[in-house]
Design a protein around this nucleic acid. Structure first.
Lengths: 246, 246
DNA sequence: CATCTAAAATTGGTCTGACCAGCTGGCCAA
DNA sequence: TTGGCCAGCTGGTCAGACCAATTTTAGATG
């Protein structure tokens, strides 16, 4: 920590050290700002690198070195021959979060445990804060599940959206993002497991649907603790089912 | 969501789409591997960019474009005239996590709420899983606090380490990283508040210290629920004190 | 010989210009 | 209308050069 302090130890004297922001970092900040403040919306195409050079008045190297991290962060997406595009909002920061949270991680025990913690709390907060729009969105996913009990793929989509909408209903952006990234990671795993035993899938869907209903009711009622308990039960069941398959 | 499905809609047919790995991405993966598998340890210096070019047999552009994201992720640190170094472990992925979790976020309500959730659960798991080494580390921070009740700076260091060690004791890497990044973000805020009213600081330290003791005792006893409750109380108190200052 | 200083070598950051491979869109022939 | 072709654009890569900060070396100084 000392060397860290040293590097931060800038001149406080009248002759303050100029914050030597590198050119590319400056551009990163600018573009990132344009994205977060909505000037650039998901799907939008950025000017070509060569045009950006003229805009910013810098070399192409700097532009490219600015785009690279943004691409790595999942904010942008480069397509050869076509251009650079703003990534879908859902994917933004997904990659760095995955890197940061999962990085080298091998097992999914931590993942399951963290998910459990996040989702139960999310259910709690959603029950306390969900607005009419949130409730409608959640209910829609529940209905969607009911109509697709025999179509695992579609059912799973609605299942995922159910948790997605609950996370959104918490009105807590951090929680929202966390749940999404962790769920995204678990999703692939779920897909694998389910495809292994398609016969059991229907029974699982039945159970899952009923549990989702309970959760939704609790949230609609505004009963935080009930929602938390219902979600707890649901996640535990789901996890057990999945782990039983391995 | 539809456009997302479209973009993902890759050929499942026998004519699967080739994953065109770019040169720089390959290098990113390699270097990242060297870091995570321990070949490159924090503080280590990488070969100069020009040397890496020869090693990988690619142009300097590619090397630099590979290093850029790693630097942005906080895995590496570039120092002009000196070289590129592997960042301290604590800082790794810190930046992308901050970006991803906090990004544009303005207020800290979400932050406080998320922290509360994470820390209470961390206390719970720590109580169930802390090994002798963990307990010793936690106890050391408690003792450190006791000896520095009048030195806010040092006290705060031990305070931070207390929570740090608890997070580590959960044995859950994801939880560990999450707590660190969120705490790091809150830390600056804590610093500001405390410096505003140095007079009250001592009284706060007194209270804080006692609460930490209670938490530690619960963890040592292995009483998860007690640890959770104690942490809950502590965080709520601390948050209230801080918010009262604004 | 120890010490301070100035030059030389090294390093990351930036610029330029060039080439490649993939995509786009329009044109033309079948 | 269909299919193929070609020109032009785009991101990806490379090479060589220069800059500014830093480290190292060599020299001058005491």
């Amino acid at each position: 920590m000392s060397e860290r302090a040293d590097s931060k130890q800038q001149q406080i004297d009248p002759f303050r050290q100029v914050a030597r922001a590198t050119v590319s970092d400056t551009i990163v900040t600018q573009i990132r700002g344009l994205i977060t403040n909505g000037t650039l919306k998901p799907g939008d195409r950025l000017p070509s690198e060569r045009d950006l050079c003229k805009c910013f008045g810098v070399g192409r190297t700097s532009v490219r070195e600015a785009l690279k991290p943004l691409i790595a962060m999942g904010l942008l997406e480069g397509r050869v021959g076509s251009g650079t595009f703003v990534a879908a909002e859902m994917g933004q920061f997904q990659k760095p979060l995955e890197w940061g949270l999962l990085g080298d991680l091998s097992g999914q025990d931590d993942l399951v445990e963290t998910r459990h913690m996040l989702e139960t709390n999310a259910a709690y907060w959603a029950a306390l804060r969900a607005g009419p729009a949130n409730l409608a969105a959640i209910e829609a996913t529940v209905l969607g599940m009911a109509e697709n009990l025999r179509q695992p793929d579609r059912f799973q989509d609605f299942d995922a959206n159910f948790h997605f909408e609950i996370a959104r209903a918490t009105q807590n952006k951090i929680l929202f993002r966390l749940i999404n990234v962790i769920r995204g990671q678990i999703q692939t795993w779920i897909g694998e497991r389910l495809s292994l035993s398609p016969d059991r899938t229907e029974a699982l869907a039945e159970t899952s649907y009923r549990q989702h209903q309970v959760i939704f009711t609790a949230i609609k009622t505004g009963d935080g603790e009930a929602a938390r308990a219902a979600m707890d039960h649901h996640i535990q069941t789901a996890t057990r089912d999945l782990q039983a398959n391995r």
